[in-house]
């Protein structure tokens, strides 16, 4: 194995990503969980950079590390919540869940390593922002438009579910 700079960067970033995910599950306080999750998102952005996808990396930082993490932090700060909640999951359920997920992971890894998916090296220039924009606004114009209606629905839904009514007697 040749120890190139790319490999070291990948190693560090993936350890950070996995470490963040593990901390997110094991942390006691919700706030720490959100921060660990943001850390994972950030490391994944680094991996995208290594894979020659700078646009995706920027989007990852903007949307996941920025918007989603901030949204979660706001959600945590604006709502009442108790620290150290007792988990409602019984021990045997956890064990069964772990075995199930481990089997699933095993099957996936087995499949992925069995199937030769090598189709030669692509030229990163063919997959730039320019091509992405052309694809979104030409080939995928209809899903793009429907997605805008999806956002409208999400907005309307958020407003009507969160709005306090005038004549509400609570």
């Amino acid at each position: 194995m040749n120890l190139s700079g790319e490999f070291i960067a990948f190693f560090v970033l993936s350890v950070m990503a996995i470490g963040g995910a593990v901390f997110m599950i094991n942390m006691q306080r919700v706030m720490h969980m959100a921060l660990a999750l943001a850390f994972t998102f950030f490391s994944i952005a680094g991996i995208y950079l290594l894979l020659n996808a700078p646009f995706l990396a920027v989007i990852q930082v903007l949307i996941y590390t920025g918007a989603i993490s901030i949204l979660m932090l706001f959600g945590i700060m604006l709502t009442k919540h108790r620290y150290e909640e007792k988990s409602a999951v019984a021990r045997w359920q956890g064990v069964i869940g772990f075995i199930g997920v481990a089997c699933f992971l095993g099957v996936l890894m087995w499949t992925i390593y069995r199937t030769p998916l090598l189709s030669g090296q692509g030229n990163p220039k063919d997959f730039g922002i320019h091509q992405l924009g052309a694809a979104v606004f030409k080939e995928y114009a209809i899903p793009f438009e429907v997605a805008s209606i999806l956002l409208l629905v999400a907005l309307v839904g958020a407003v009507i579910l969160a709005k306090r009514e005038e004549n509400e007697c609570s």
Binding site: P143, V146, I149, L150, V153, A154, V156, G157, I160
Partner: peptide, 12 residues
């Protein structure tokens, strides 16, 4: 996207 539009509206 169509499926998610249906699902999201249904959730609300």
């Amino acid at each position: 996207v169509g499926l998610e539009l249906l699902s999201l509206s249904s959730y609300i």
